[in-house]
Design a protein around this nucleic acid. Structure first.
Lengths: 245, 245, 245, 245
DNA sequence: CATGAATGAGTCTTCATTCAT
DNA sequence: CATGAATGAAGACTCATTCAT
């Protein structure tokens, strides 16, 4: 008899939470297919019979775990209202959160992709997750376009899909395949590429020289002499991502 | 008892090839974990006993299939020597091949990623695959930088990782998650974003206005009035990808 | 810890009765083996723990349910003292009750048979149940024989086993296998067969022509010329079944 | 992979047969629900994995066993063309076969009834089995009616259902509940009751006194003096059962 | 080389029963 | 008395792999 969380006593709630936590760890370490129900139970310190008190199957547990993770990713990626006013800095802040969100859950997201290949509902969850990020990106770009700070000819959604994908994909390559880079460098680089790609025109006075790759940690990216003035002032686009939620 | 292809009679070679082909189809349709040795045998029209004459395990078959696919991707992505001289057009040509290569093998690549999570040798194969594309991209960028056509401040490798990831990721989102876009639009868009991100300065006379998103099929991207002349002529970077192999 | 009904508070008595009722329904609907303790508890609206306050096992509950049903069957099959004096009519009345008793409990009786195959005590209960009906039938036949109304050469017990079995079996076929027949027709037919089988000679004036089967609706069953008059007046045999209890 | 018998090698055929035989014994001894797949495998001397090479589940094995048994019952109950010409004797012969057929398979038939309660296909098999016997009985009765030897007013089918049920049910009570009787007595008794119930009028010279119950072993049913001539010549009813198949 | 029967380790899942609260 | 969480024995079923023919 599978017990819904609303009906549980505190003891039950604890056990259920332990199973979810154990499951999350197991999925992250071993991958979806490799996780055995008994592994999860052993981690959680309960008998396998108990597992079925709370979840009907491994899939059901994964659904729960995935839901939790997706929720966390939504929450973690919101750029607070106290975001910097400088567009470029806001893009940078958003990218940092974006990168971290995907990086810290990269294994589970991959699992979700696996599961999505088979199970329609997981596919739905995955689409929903991506959609949130895509919408934020598109919305940010649209605002910059309205303000005349970004190329008005770009399709906001498609651009967001592509540039967001760049960040997401880098998170994966970085974390899972061990591409060498420190976080600051990576974020600076992603931000530069992003800003340029959308034709960001600075509205502020902060110059970001086109010819410099601010990859070095703390690199202030000094403007090289040859930088075209019009391009040296990136402004925010996706920086406003978080504000749309 | 496992027979390598070198020692095979022609009958054996045929059987082996049939198993590989059947395995490829099965992996693509069902996913790595879901494929049963018997499925493959049934597709290939041989008995399960026969499978073990040629492969020691499902993993071994997958290794073979993956190797084949990776080889095809290498081959398919080479921009021929007859590539257009216009840098922008060359980037575009490379992106088209790049997109197609990943798109047409997206399921198997994902499988490879799954397998890589567990098996070190698959991880190696995957790294190798990515490395080829990364090197091509980095090499292309380096040349453009040397020619003064791209921002010399960008780290070639990291840039290639990121922008290449953008293409690869879009292939996946496009194919697997059903993001709507036609190929021409997608390639045009990817190329525009890529060219701008590297600060491509056209050396040619072909103007590509920064303010236009050449997303429409066949969009010649007419230059809007306000486009800065200096920015309207993108040149190739990754267009040279294939030449580096 | 199992609480017998004598020691129960009224609350306990109610809970116990609810479990028995729920069990009866469950056994009838699902069959012995398919019934889960939890099913019963859910029906009765109590938690599974509570079940074991009253019954030590599913078998124990079934024992209780079976006992109840057997008791009801005993009670329901008693032909009241107001039974008609006409032997044929009394057989008919008895057959009606007999048919109904077995029909309305057919599933539980079958369950009892299942259980009897394994459990000796259920076997005893089943034997007891049949014995009651057999004794009534045998007793009735013996009386008719003594009155010279039935063939004195028939072994009363064996005859009762066989003819009683005919009724019981028909109840099962009728109910469980959907043999088409309306109750009146069935009872009339069973009675005719029964009466003739025992060579019932009517002591009354009610003639029932041997050649007519009053079964088919409208079947007037015209008496064939050769029908011996002596056989046209069936008298009661099993009609006195109920009187023996 | 479940192998159909047509495709089997002789070794496979032997294994399959061994499993069916083992299953039959197990079902007879333990009852459907109590049989474990491993029990059957142990009896057949194969590993449990092998079981699933031939049958998809316990149910499937039972289906096979039940089919075999039903086939045997059909075959065993056919009254050969060398049946006696005397109607009474033919009924007797048919009843003997009938009783033996049901008696020797009583446990499996009960199992089939259990299974029929749940599984529609088993219900079908059971109906088919009963239908064969019912048709034979009805056909036999119809012929007797046409010959003027049996009460023409009786509905053949319903009569056959009821009297056939008498035999079937007795087989069960006799075998499973240990009702005491030797086979000859039982058959003689069943035949007497059957013959009388249908108002069998002898066309032959063999007198079967209505007043005698030939229950005694070897009872040749000596014709009592008082037997009406018209009744002394029993004719066949169910005796012709086997001829209709 | 090909076949396919046989094997059994490995998992999932059910459910009767116990027991602390 | 009632509750419901926890337990673990028991069984079904899968499938990679071996091997005799």
């Amino acid at each position: 008899m599978i017990v819904k969380s609303e009906v549980l006593t505190s003891r039950g709630r604890r056990t259920r939470a332990a199973l979810i936590q154990a499951g999350r760890e197991a999925f992250e370490e071993q991958g979806f297919e490799a996780v055995r129900v008994d592994d999860v139970c052993a981690r959680a310190g309960v008998s396998h019979g108990t597992f079925y008190t709370y979840f009907g199957s491994r899939e059901e547990l994964f659904r729960e775990v995935a839901g939790t993770v997706v929720g966390e990713m939504f929450a973690a990626s919101v750029v607070g209202p106290a975001a910097p006013g400088d567009p470029y800095a806001r893009i940078e802040a958003a990218n940092l959160l974006y990168l971290r969100a995907w990086a810290s859950n990269s294994r589970l997201v991959r699992m979700l992709e696996q599961a999505a290949a088979t199970d329609e509902s997981f596919r739905g969850l995955l689409l929903e997750l991506r959609e949130v990020f895509v919408r934020r990106g598109a919305e940010g770009l649209r605002r910059l376009q309205e303000q005349g700070l970004a190329d008005p000819g770009l399709d906001p959604r498609l651009t967001a899909v592509m540039l967001g994908g760049m960040v997401e994909h880098f998170a994966r390559v970085w974390l899972d395949l061990g591409e060498q880079a420190d976080e600051r460098t990576a974020v600076a680089m992603l931000t530069t590429l992003w800003a340029r790609a959308i034709g960001l025109t600075s509205a502020s006075t902060t110059p970001v020289p086109i010819t410099s790759a601010p990859t070095a940690p703390g690199s202030a990216a000094p403007a090289p002499a040859g930088a075209a003035p019009a391009e040296t002032s990136p402004a925010a686009s996706a920086s406003t991502q978080g504000e749309g939620t």
